[in-house]
Design a protein around this nucleic acid. Structure first.
Length: 273
DNA sequence: AACAAGACCTGCATGC
DNA sequence: TGCATGCAGGTCTTGT
């Protein structure tokens, strides 16, 4: 489900509830998410103070106390909700934290592709899931020059390349399709051909799409909701994703659907070359 | 080494 | 109505 904009939306929404707040209750339901939850999660978190959450790629990171960090990944179907008072937990609510002042944070994930970990702050740069991530697409590090360099000799499609979190961290299936449309680049194009003018179009296209999606609270298709219960409104701004057979907003040609590396791509065969 | 396909898991829409 | 099928915002693991 969640790509960078959805995760960023969640991070921003939970900040006011958890920052500087002390944990009073910890609930762990099913421990078999994508991987088994860390042992003693309850006792490790109990009574600790949470600090300001931040995001890396599609991961939410919450400093706990002085020495540890809680890592959350929402997988395909995960969501985080917040409540002013203790909620009645539902079937797929696998993890929940209660705070001083009665606020609650609930992690829900029907498909259980999500993941929760707790690790020492000293391991932040060596954590197996974090250390492989490429730069943030909204950072100064992600430039046309960086992209041109990384795609060298890559014969895979640019669409598959953009989904590789080790190259750039946070882009998923929706925003890859949207950004390629905005840049006028075919998802089938070999990655190594994205240099010069094409790279100069694609990098800002990615950045504009992601920023607008964040402003809209992300894209709600099936599972994504903002922690306060609001949906994400960027779904109304999607030009390609999920619109197979509809007319291209630019040239009116039928939007095409394609499978690449097991993922569906949507594109305009006229506007994207 | 690089890439594509498979696997993980549940819920929902569709069609017979 | 019931059942089978296919699909879904991710990504690690396996196979070619």
């Amino acid at each position: 489900m969640p790509e960078l904009p959805e995760v960023e939306t969640v991070k921003r929404a939970i900040g006011p509830l958890i920052t500087g707040n002390q944990i009073t209750h910890v609930f762990v339901g099913r421990k078999d998410l994508r991987w088994a939850l860390p042992v003693c999660l309850e006792s490790q978190l109990s009574k600790a103070i949470c600090h300001a959450p931040y995001r890396r790629g599609k991961y939410i990171l919450i400093p706990i106390g002085d020495e540890q960090t809680l890592l959350l990944h929402l997988g395909m179907s995960g969501s985080i909700r917040i409540y002013p008072n203790r909620p009645n937990l539902q079937k797929h609510d696998h993890f929940a934290i209660g705070f001083e002042g009665n606020g609650w944070l609930v992690f829900s994930d029907p498909r259980r592709f999500g993941y929760i970990d707790l690790f020492a702050n000293s391991d932040i740069t060596s954590h197996r899931l974090l250390k492989i991530l490429g730069p943030e697409p909204l950072s100064e590090e992600f430039t046309p020059e960086y992209l041109s360099k990384k795609v060298e000799h890559k014969t895979c499609s640019i669409k598959s390349f953009l989904l590789d979190q080790t190259k750039v961290a946070g882009i998923g299936n929706i925003y890859a399709s949207e950004a390629l449309f905005k840049a006028g680049i075919s998802p089938k194009r070999q990655a190594k051909t994205i240099k010069g003018k094409r790279a100069e179009r694609l990098v800002p296209a990615i950045q504009v799409i992601l920023k607008k999606a964040i402003e809209a609270g992300g894209t709600s298709l099936r599972d994504h909701i903002q922690p306060g219960g609001e949906i994400g409104y960027f779904v109304q701004s999607l030009q390609m994703y999920g619109r197979g057979g509809e007319s291209c907003p630019n040239c009116s040609a039928a939007i095409r659907v394609l499978k690449q590396s097991g993922r569906t791509s949507f594109y305009c065969g006229i506007c994207q070359r």
